[in-house]
Nucleic acid binder design. Structure first.
Lengths: 110, 110
DNA sequence: ACCGAATATTCGAATTTAATGAGATTGCCA
DNA sequence: TGGCAATCTCATTAAATTCGAATATTCGGT
């Protein structure tokens, strides 16, 4: 596999590599949502969410549809949701270990 | 889903978000390899590869087995390879578009 | 005990990323 | 056209990532 494609693939993972963006994709997994709805459900700064959406748009993980005053987002390809589902099963498999790791991190961090 | 788990999930994607680390996982997909073999096949600096391996180890995407002077690495869970396979199909689906994007990036970058 | 090979770790510089606050668009409706 | 709501973009700053060079560690052989 050429390195350029590997870089491209890495960029997609990079786009997935943020809790907020994962949350966005999970919210969009079941239904198309407007930017405003996303902001509300996430409970985060408007500008911040908008920037994360821009990243997802640039990598084409989501598509957007303008309708009047609003912009509606949806996941571009179900494969991406499959990836998230696979990840979910991965985490369930190692759940106790993940929690253990989280606990250690919070202890050493305090 | 609690945010802590989402953060944990994002960390795994972060670990996948580098061309070299993707290359490492793809190499390990078919066979267990020693650090030296990985370095040789990647044709990169020893320290650099070792650092990437450390990241993959920290996130537990790979496991390592010490045998004498060498350290052998392998992918921890086949689910991760499934994720890479899914991504591969995603890229094949949008290959022309990806190439187009790569071309534009290289043009504007020069 | 010493040496060399294999691997890991540390450090510093350059680059990238994330969050916030402020400003700029765009589209609707009176 | 004026104004408001929804959304995006820009600038700044703090934090994280990446790489190479140098250094450290660990193990087997002599």
């Amino acid at each position: 596999m050429p390195d350029s494609l590997r870089r491209f693939k890495a960029d997609v993972f990079q786009a997935l590599a943020h809790p907020t963006r994962i949350a966005i994709l999970e919210l969009l997994g079941t239904a198309e949502l407007s930017a405003g709805e996303l902001i509300e459900r996430l409970g985060m700064e408007q500008a911040n969410v908008s920037q994360h959406l821009a990243i997802l748009r640039t990598q084409r993980l989501v598509i957007n549809r303008k309708s009047g005053n609003q912009v509606f987002y949806s996941v571009r390809d179900p494969i991406l949701l499959e990836v998230l589902t696979l990840m979910r099963s991965y985490f369930q498999k190692y759940l106790t270990e993940a929690q253990q790791m989280l606990r250690e991190m919070s202890e050493s961090g305090s």
